[in-house]
């Protein structure tokens, strides 16, 4: 009887590791081809008002919303991308026009917009961000603050060409 070149236990361990890696998305077919596009989050589009104006800051400021925008696949930073931002803050409700504003990404694909302090609403301290300009697929994000006391929040977009 020939001895198996690989002990059974090690074979099982390797198989389990391979299953875990693919099963959890660590090695997925999409990843293999490059950076996967961001998908919209549940509830991300709630109280969205299309066409928020580009502003220096929303209201009196005091809270920083920031993030990055990259292209799906090659991960190239995207410049001049309009990101719309809104939230329930100390100065207004999510649905109020004055709670909405937009900003553009810089050459490094980074954006930041000062806005009033976010206050928990509907049970969670969260903000809303949207990319809805047409050149890429629309994405709505709804990041949650780890603490209601935080004075900043970030969200990152990987956009898929439309």
């Amino acid at each position: 009887m020939s001895q198996s070149p690989m002990p059974r236990r090690r074979f099982m361990a390797a198989g389990a590791a391979a299953f875990l890696a693919t099963g959890t998305g660590l090695i997925s077919p999409v990843r293999a081809q490059g950076l996967a596009p961001t998908t919209s989050m549940r509830g991300g589009a709630n109280n969205y008002r299309p066409g928020a104006l580009i502003v220096d800051r929303i209201g009196e400021g005091g809270f920083m919303m920031s993030g990055t925008v990259r292209r799906a696949g090659d991960g190239v930073p995207l410049e001049g991308i309009r990101i719309q931002i809104w939230a329930h803050t100390t100065e207004g409700r999510e649905s109020d026009a004055r709670s909405h504003g937009a900003t553009l990404t810089n050459a490094d694909g980074m954006f930041q917009l000062e806005m009033p302090q976010i206050v928990p609403t509907f049970g969670q301290p969260h903000g809303h961000l949207a990319y809805d300009s047409g050149d890429f697929e629309t994405v709505f994000l709804r990041p949650v603050m780890s603490s209601a006391r935080d004075t900043s929040l970030s969200a990152h977009f990987v956009l898929q060409p439309a």
Partner: peptide, 23 residues
């Protein structure tokens, strides 16, 4: 009251489409 406050959030909750587990 919550429906009046934010209709889309309440609709999400009632249809089990909300991002929050407590809903």
């Amino acid at each position: 009251g919550l429906w009046i406050t934010s209709p889309p959030d309440m609709v999400d909750a009632l249809t089990f489409a909300a991002p929050t587990a407590f809903s």
